[in-house]
Write a protein that binds this DNA or RNA. Sequence first.
DNA 1: CTGAAAGCGCTTACAG
DNA 2: CTGAAAGCGCTTACAG
Lengths: 340, 340
Amino acid sequence: MGHLAITAKEIAALAGVSRGTVDRALKNRPRISRETKERILKIAEQYNYKPNLIGKALVSSGQKVGVAVILTSVGNPFFDDVKNGIFAAVKAYEDYGIEINLTELKGYNPEELISALENIQDGIENLIITPVDDEKLKGKLQELVEKGINVVLLSSDIDVKGKLSFVGCDCLRSGKIAGRMVGLLSEGHARLCIVTGSTLHPGHRWRVEGVSSVVREYSDIKIVDVIENNDDNETAYLAMKAALNRNGDIDFVCITAGGVQGTLKAIEEDGRKIKVCSFDDIPATKEAMKNGKILATICQQPYEQGYNAVKSIFDKVIAKTHVEERQYSELSIKVDYSIQ
Amino acid sequence: MGHLAITAKEIAALAGVSRGTVDRALKNRPRISRETKERILKIAEQYNYKPNLIGKALVSSGQKVGVAVILTSVGNPFFDDVKNGIFAAVKAYEDYGIEINLTELKGYNPEELISALENIQDGIENLIITPVDDEKLKGKLQELVEKGINVVLLSSDIDVKGKLSFVGCDCLRSGKIAGRMVGLLSEGHARLCIVTGSTLHPGHRWRVEGVSSVVREYSDIKIVDVIENNDDNETAYLAMKAALNRNGDIDFVCITAGGVQGTLKAIEEDGRKIKVCSFDDIPATKEAMKNGKILATICQQPYEQGYNAVKSIFDKVIAKTHVEERQYSELSIKVDYSIQ
DNA sequence: CTGAAAGCGCTTACAG
DNA sequence: CTGAAAGCGCTTACAG
């Protein structure tokens, strides 16, 4: 504290050279003698020179930084807050020329993601995408990375070497948290049915794995069924109905992805007293929490995920600071009174 | 999307005047004729002109924005993350000239807060402080506000008219969340002891109120004791010990503020099987969660609180955007697997 | 190998 | 009442 940062101009004065020469030294550009370069670098280090971001930004004002955003968000309320976060970041950075081009898709079809990628490909240098676990899509994204495009994976993580970052939650951990909640809310006695979304979604698989690993700690909790619903309420209703018919003893349901409304409908119609915990806090979940139909839900900060995906691009392209490759958002449990 | 924002220079060209005249119109400065002013304002509105923050910031570079920060943080690990948030924000905004002057105090003594205020008072234009509920301190802060100083209250809210903002959590709500956890974790059957910090701290009072109001929903939860420990572990140990002696039936303890270690020590020595939930996730609490001694804890994003306190100043003084007067941080419940 | 200049969008004196 | 200029810290051609 106390001293203001030194500027390139001041370094020039101290070294007795021009601003241009200082720039050559600092940026490792050619056409500068060893001696002057070393002299300048020494001064810069001594005074702890850091280029002023505002000065830099002003130069590149008028330059657009285009960002293609492709989300599997149609009909999935979870993404509403993700989008709000994206829009907020775009607004915060608009003076730096950040601009987005948003494509929204329904479901987890890899072909559609690939064709969306092909549509926006011309000239775009930054990409934010919610991928699925598909070899062809992975290959396509790998190709883009190798072309020098900054690729940010949002919400769902797949193995693309050299991607700029993954922004989302640690799904295994979130599953474990849910498993602990099953244990705590049942005081260690439960016949559990796990409800999952899509096996194409690696995060959904991790969650089931997390829940399972933790409930194994309890001698009197048994997983009696694991059902899938593709994040679709109609499918969810039928799958839950069938599971309840198959298993007379279910007294706890853990919904690890979408299809909340459908699942709850089946449970209500069944009439048995069943404890439910869930993931995320979409409006249907909030409503169910207020009515006591869901006791607790595990949330993953969708707004921050959207914001930070855009921030990754900003940090890389404009601020030129280090970008963390795995950006896990905080996981928090909510109950009825947590809801605003 | 698509179009870049219009600049003051472009407005000048469109209006056929100089940049200076545009500035006079936009800023409501004198020495401009009605007609040209109106013409310029019309163009500005038409093209949705918004001054470029970077251009503005560059002008005022070299100007310091001093912020005095006064925290009741000595010996209170809750504030470690608050400070990390403050430092992160200062770093993010350093190119804009933000600079802090930090004073740390032990305990909640109003006199010390007031004298700390007097020490930093010369020339400072921005203040972030964790206040206590004291009339004299309130008067002092009110005075500062009236002098035009931007006052941000952090963590603890008191009634100062015209303050820039309060950044912290909604303590009543956090108490209600804790009350619900007591209900859920006990399946509605508990003999509850509530542990609080200081009655000087309005937030602590609200939490007790929140817990109490919710456990009243349950016919078989009784509050058998409410004890105070001044956020001090020694006091906490003795108070908990005494409460356990007074009440043979305690089977649930809700620690709503500090003194976690002391309280837990007394419970352990007692040997009874007692469920515990707490607030915040200081290291001692994390440790106790991992050992199963605390089942769940209600957290309030201390890092974000620190960051946003500084951001309030930045938004007001530099970005000149609207600052929300009550900035509530998210409340989240954590269990053992939530801890990194 | 090095310097001088123009420009990013704004503000702030100063000159007419 | 209005304009022309300088400057914030940087980058990017261009001239020597």
